[in-house]
């Protein structure tokens, strides 16, 4: 489907089903209730703006020649930007971000490409390797299969959020001490997973650690040392 029809469809949808907007509004109010700072007056303005502009564009949509002209003049891109983004308020490593993102943006790509937090790694982009593991609201998840647009008001912790300056998190220290990595690329995912593994109560034996760390592939083959590191942190009993 090319952009024109894509756009077309969107606009027809809007015309026929204004209830979508009712829903959106309800949702926004809901988020407002949770966190009054989330939605600003500016946001509401831009929303009205968006409706106005899409209304204008709808008129064009019914006259194909104008539409073609519109796209040649790159209006399509401008309008697409309105059509294609949603507001997102998200906290990453304690820092709040108010963003406009495309609904299709994954949390992983948001972190790496927009927030410049490249510590979280892309190994497969399909939930098959664990390199992108982060904590969302305290739970380890795969950021490559997580749509950022569905993480409204979420609290995300990435590898960059563990150390306090030069003071490393106990798991980071243990990974260095036990040489739980070589190339270091799966390491942020392993560390995020390792911390969660202990917090979840799945680090009671080497066997259990191995099973609950199996969602994190290490091609350098540092598994033996990774289990050593997690075992030591678990036995150290520090609060993580």
């Amino acid at each position: 489907m090319n952009f024109i029809t894509f756009c077309d469809l969107r606009l027809l949808n809007l015309l026929e089903y204004p209830s979508d907007f009712a829903n959106l509004k309800i949702d926004r109010m809901a988020s407002k209730k949770n966190n009054p700072k989330e939605v600003t007056e500016n946001d509401s303005n831009s929303r009205r703006d968006f409706i106005k502009k899409s209304g204008l564009f709808t008129a064009l949509a019914f006259t194909p020649p104008s539409l073609v002209m519109a796209s040649e003049n790159k209006w399509d891109e401008k309008i697409a930007e309105y059509l294609e983004t949603v507001p997102l308020s998200i906290e990453v490593n304690g820092k709040k971000h108010n963003l406009n993102i495309e609904p299709r943006t994954t949390l992983l790509d948001l972190l790496r490409e927009q927030l410049q937090l490249t510590g979280t790694k892309k190994g497969c982009d399909h939930g098959q390797c664990g390199a992108c593991t982060v904590h969302v609201n305290g739970t380890r998840i795969l950021s490559c299969l997580t749509l950022a647009s569905m993480q409204q008001n979420a609290e995300v912790t990435t590898i960059e959020g563990l150390a306090k300056g030069k003071k490393l998190h106990p798991m980071q220290e243990a990974f260095i001490k036990h040489d739980g990595f070589q190339c270091g690329y799966c390491t942020p995912g392993q560390i995020m997973s390792g911390i969660a593994c202990i917090k979840e109560g799945h680090a009671n034996s080497r066997e259990e650690i191995r099973e609950y760390m199996s969602g994190n592939i290490c091609r350098c083959g540092a598994y033996h040392n990774i289990v050593d590191a997690i075992t030591e942190v678990k036995e150290g009993g520090k609060e993580l």
């Binding site: 790496r112 410049q116 937090l117 490249t118 510590g119 979280t120 790694k121 990435t158 590898i159 960059e160 563990l162 150390a163 490393l168 980071q172 990974f175 260095i176 001490k177 040489d179 990595f181 270091g184 690329y185 390491t187 942020p188 560390i191």
Partner: peptide
């Protein structure tokens, strides 16, 4: 001795190719 690039690797600050700003 520990890996000298260990700190960079466990903190996510090691810069791999596509990560240069």
């Amino acid at each position: 001795i520990n890996r000298v690039d260990g700190f960079a690797k466990v903190t996510g600050s090691a810069t791999y190719s596509a990560e240069y700003k």
